[in-house]
């Protein structure tokens, strides 16, 4: 803890006021603009609405098929999060408890893919999905299934990394006891480790959900009108004849609140996971 002279207290309050302002200002404009009638957002900007209205929140569902995009996003993100957690739990358990050749190589490869530019995978993946469709009839390109598969691998490396840290912090004696009682390693994982690691697993699930919910690059290429998700759908408000800025702001708020709330609840776990990984 920093030891501070008295004048430093003033510096602190000024500084914190500055940060509060830069964070709140855009959020304030978002919230008030969403409650403005259309004429208010088309003319010159004003800090306060001439008339407070909740109509934009009703209109957003009619201007574009926002309901469908919302449903698509919910389905895709939920499926990606569930599958990602399932796959990550098994992989993390293997890395945390077993000693096997290729263990380090696997960890490094998986983590490093996280750092590569998404654009590198986009073109080949597009081509692969189009051709899988032609060969097998399984539609991955333009379908929700394709998005789920793509997104779940995006969150996989970080999820595995976090869960390995989490599992490592669980004493081996716990699952050893289960093994002695005759459970196999998978039984020990499911009956002993998973219940203890539930907070970490929930954190990873939320992380995977948020990742899928916010992805733009692949969604912009890999979706059709039927499977379109929110990140792409929301941009349609601005391609209309005039931009309904009040509706755009309302829609942005509606799609933000659930995930932002999830993320903020998760922050403590995220920090733990990140620092645990950094220490090792």
């Amino acid at each position: 803890m920093l030891f501070e002279p008295r004048w430093f207290r003033w510096v602190r309050w000024v500084g914190l006021a500055f940060f509060t302002t830069i964070v709140l200002l855009p959020l304030y404009v978002m919230a008030t603009s969403a409650a403005k009638p259309l004429r208010d957002v088309q003319g010159e900007f004003h800090w306060w609405p001439t008339e407070l209205t909740l109509r934009p929140f009703a209109d957003i569902w009619r201007t574009i098929p926002l309901g469908r995009y919302f449903l698509n996003s919910v389905l895709v993100s939920t499926a990606a999060a569930l599958c990602s957690v399932l796959v990550a739990v098994f992989a993390a358990y293997a890395i945390s408890r077993f000693r096997f050749p290729g263990r380090a190589l696997f960890s490094v490869t998986v983590l490093s893919t996280q750092m590569f530019p998404g654009i590198l995978f986009l073109l080949p993946l597009f081509l692969i999905y189009v051709n899988i469709d032609q060969l097998t009839g399984i539609t991955l390109y333009g379908s929700r299934l394709g998005l789920v598969i793509t997104y779940l691998t995006f969150s996989l490396p970080f999820s595995i990394w976090m869960l390995v840290g989490y599992f490592n912090s669980i004493p081996r004696e716990l699952d050893e006891a289960a093994l002695v009682d005759g459970a196999g390693p998978v039984g020990a994982l499911l009956r002993v480790v998973v219940p203890v690691a539930t907070p970490g697993i929930v954190a990873v699930a939320i992380y995977a959900f948020v990742t899928a919910w916010s992805e733009v690059l692949f969604a912009s290429i890999m979706t059709s009108e039927q499977s379109r998700t929110l990140p792409v759908g929301l941009q349609l408000y601005s391609t209309q004849a005039g931009v309904y800025w009040n509706q755009v702001m309302a829609a942005s708020l509606v799609v933000s609140v659930p995930v932002a709330a999830g993320f903020l609840m998760l922050q403590r776990f995220l920090v733990q996971g990140l620092t645990a990984g950094a220490v090792k």
Partner: peptide
Amino acid sequence: LAYLLLLPALALELLVHLVPMAVG
């Protein structure tokens, strides 16, 4: 067993990251 547990993660990473990289 370790490889079996890793298999789903490995298969997905291959499909979405490593194979596309090679294809790229």
